[in-house]
């Protein structure tokens, strides 16, 4: 599978309060959440972002609150994947559990500029910045996480395993 999209660039330590503010957590409806994505940093973001776009960010993306509403809102807004220097631990788990694709590559995160067109081969983690003509390798996805993806997420994985037992 190959993803290709336009890049929106963010800095270090993008916290989940900024991704989706707590005042909107009176619902878990993905559509409603997606309307307020990144609002406190860029009130227009939800109207500018197009399906298939890619977020590129610095270190510790998704730090702070454990709210799964954050990856849910990002996915619903149409973001195809996130490339970051590093991800906060809970966000990392939540992304896999909710089926949001994430890639860790400090080199790509630092080099890729906003507005660039980037493609990613999901299986290999090969990242190509088509605008700048540069390629990067994302950290390989651990086998266990691949198994989760193959099963369709954590819940199907757990339920399948339970049936087997």
């Amino acid at each position: 599978m190959k993803i290709e999209g336009k890049v929106w660039k963010f800095g270090d330590n993008i916290d989940t309060d900024v991704i989706i503010a707590a005042r909107y957590l009176v619902t878990s409806d993905p559509k409603e959440l997606a309307r307020h994505i990144m609002e406190d940093m860029d009130p227009e973001f939800s109207t500018k972002v197009q399906p298939g776009d890619i977020i590129v960010a610095g270190k510790n993306f998704g730090c702070g609150s454990s709210r799964e509403h954050a990856p849910i809102a990002i996915k619903e807004a149409g973001i195809a994947c996130i490339i970051a220097e590093s991800f906060a631990r809970i966000f990392f788990r939540n992304a896999f559990n909710t089926g949001l694709l994430i890639f860790e590559s400090p080199e790509a995160a630092r080099s890729i500029q906003e507005g660039n067109i980037v493609s990613i081969e999901v299986e290999t983690g090969k990242i190509t910045d088509k605008t700048a003509g540069a390629t990067f390798a994302a950290a390989p996805i651990p086998q266990f996480m691949k198994d989760l993806i193959d099963a369709g997420g954590l819940m199907p994985y757990v339920l399948k395993k339970r049936l087997k037992n």
């Binding site: 454990s66 799964e68 990856p71 939540n94 954590l154 819940m155 757990v158 339920l159 339970r162």
Partner: peptide, 14 residues
Amino acid sequence: TGMGSTDIAAAMIT
């Protein structure tokens, strides 16, 4: 440790 809602849903089952 903190986790997301899906992890807790799975934990409530298993």
